[in-house]
């Protein structure tokens, strides 16, 4: 029964693509929240906390995402409960996002001139008020282009969830290829679908960056 590529398969790919988007959004939102905490810890006044989170970031950034995925997958397995692959994949990607976004955002916070913090503190604002009202709004502007750029990384990274059996776009393509044996066609289409998701984001990120550079040059 070697059916060729049909419309049915295409729907199956689109469904997988939907799950790719869901997983990316989940990882980005939850990982972003964790990344915000990582960023706060990295600029904390407590040296011990800074060092601890620095080590966390170094470990996550120095280990392949695939290995993190395996550790989480089998690590959850020792609790004896069968975890849905979405959970293992989501958790791994969250860890991955938290480290990278935390570092990106720390860089943006530190790019806000120190004189701004100084001026705010001279007006008797607390450290937290200074961060919220003066530093973060300015850091957010700087952070938008690289954050959108990182979203492309996240979308691509979700393809690894296929390895633990989560049926997203890559897994769907594998499944279809196993029955049709048309790898150039199937993986080509899957690649184009990824491209359709990622390329607009890449362009947007670059446009944002250009705009930021222009307004900086004027200032």
């Amino acid at each position: 029964m070697n059916g060729g590529f049909s419309l049915y398969y295409f729907y199956y790919l689109l469904e997988g693509m939907g799950w790719t988007v869901v997983l990316s959004a989940l990882a980005f939102v939850v990982g972003g929240a964790a990344g915000f905490i990582v960023m706060l810890a990295r600029i904390s006044r407590s040296a011990a906390l800074r060092r601890l989170v620095f080590v966390y970031v170094q470990i996550v950034q120095g280990t392949p995402l695939l290995i993190i995925l395996f550790v989480v997958y089998f690590g959850l397995g020792i609790f004896g409960v069968e975890m849905p692959p979405l959970f293992a994949a989501g958790l791994s990607l969250m860890i991955y996002c938290s480290a990278f976004l935390g570092e990106i955002w720390r860089g943006c916070v530190e790019a806000v001139p120190r004189t701004q913090t100084e001026a705010a503190e001279c007006l008797a604002l607390t450290r937290w008020q200074t961060l919220r009202d003066v530093v973060l709004p300015q850091a957010a502007r700087i952070a938008t282009p690289p954050t959108v750029g990182f979203l492309v990384q996240v979308l691509k990274s979700t393809s690894l969830a296929s390895v633990v059996g989560f049926v997203e776009l890559t897994r769907a393509a594998q499944v279809i290829n196993n029955s049709t044996f048309q790898p150039f066609l199937i993986f080509g289409i899957a690649g184009l679908l990824y491209f359709a998701l990622c390329y607009p984001l890449s362009i947007w990120s670059r446009a944002l960056e250009r705009r930021l550079n222009v307004s900086r040059r004027q200032a």
Partner: peptide
């Protein structure tokens, strides 16, 4: 550059490895 940077590495590997093998 754009094609490579906007598609996952895993898909690139499958495309190349299984694709070349199929021809």
């Amino acid at each position: 550059v754009e094609l490579v940077r906007n598609t996952p590495f895993l898909i690139q590997i499958f495309f190349l490895f299984f694709g070349l093998a199929s021809v």
